[in-house]
């Protein structure tokens, strides 16, 4: 029983990791209706920026805030410089650019910061809370941060006119432009926000899995699964999906299918959801008028 509880709790912690990255995917999807494969690498790169600042002696929260700001700028710049010129030529072209960005950021990080694994500090206490042996304080703290980000994102899309404009621009750019929304800039803003959310995810993930240029490679796949399971247009769904994937993966790996097939769980989930319920568990089923 003790082992079972430990599996569930450690699944929740890894699930929190997936959820935080999945949130960034939801963000970019809400703003552009595209899935950005470079989201993970962008987050990793921003985490290195944070690491550089911390290494130079900045206090943690100052570096944290500065990184989010830098990530936002970075996202906007990428949209303006790289994505915008391609415009709406074709989805494939954009996907190729995403993959290009993925490789570029990965190599750039390796080149600048080397591939050696680096410990990344956590803002939370080093010793587990209440002396428990199941989860580290950072694990709990990171889940808390993810939930805060989730609440902010939800509020942004639900209660602000900017969030509404962004959703409109993504769903129907032509009509949105007609009602006076500056579609180009809402997209750039979406990129900036997604990068900022990603950078928070990166800084929360790095203390758990260590910082290296390939930190996000495996996580991104699970985050996709999480976002798809929950519904990629729904922040709540993505977070729930993240926890679900984390716990499911642990329990199935430990008790049912063995550790060799853990990754397969994520892949089966992706395919299964796409086949059976493409909008995800909590996603809105889109109905198109023909």
């Amino acid at each position: 029983m003790d082992a079972f509880i430990a599996q569930v709790l450690s699944g929740l912690v890894t699930g929190g990791i997936y959820a935080s990255v999945a949130l960034a995917l939801v963000m970019i999807y809400q703003a552009t209706h595209l899935v950005n494969f470079a989201q993970g690498e962008l987050a990793m790169f921003c985490t290195y920026l944070a690491w550089t600042m911390l290494d130079a002696g900045f206090p943690y929260w100052a570096a944290f805030a500065a990184t989010i700001a830098l990530a936002f700028v970075c996202g906007v710049v990428i949209e303006r410089v790289v994505i915008r010129p391609i415009g709406e030529s074709s989805v494939l072209a954009v996907v190729v650019v995403f993959i290009g960005l993925l490789v570029i950021f990965n190599s750039l990080a390796g080149w600048i910061f080397t591939y050696t694994v680096k410990p990344f500090p956590s803002p939370f206490p080093a010793e587990p809370l209440f002396g428990n042996h199941y989860v580290s304080s950072h694990g709990i703290g990171a889940i808390g941060v993810t939930l805060v980000v989730l609440a902010l994102l939800y509020a942004f899309f639900r209660f602000t006119s900017l969030g509404l404009a962004m959703r409109a621009a993504a769903q129907n750019p032509v009509s949105a432009r007609l009602v006076g929304i500056r579609v180009g800039w809402t997209r750039a803003l979406g990129w900036g926000l997604a990068a900022a959310v990603g950078s928070i995810a990166g800084m929360m993930v790095a203390p758990t899995v260590y910082l290296d240029p390939n930190m996000m490679a495996g996580i991104l796949l699970y985050a996709f699964a999480a976002a798809l399971v929950g519904g990629i247009d729904n922040p709540w769904g993505a977070v729930a999906g993240g926890f679900l994937v984390g716990v499911l993966e642990n329990l199935l790996g430990a008790y049912v299918i063995g550790t060799e097939l853990k990754l397969t769980v994520a892949l089966v989930l992706i395919v299964g959801v796409l086949v059976i319920r493409p909008s995800g568990l909590f996603g809105r089923v889109t109905v198109k008028r023909v």
Binding site: G218, Y222, K262
Partner: peptide, 9 residues
Amino acid sequence: EVSDPTVDS
């Protein structure tokens, strides 16, 4: 697997 984020489980 090398793609696993952690080995906690």
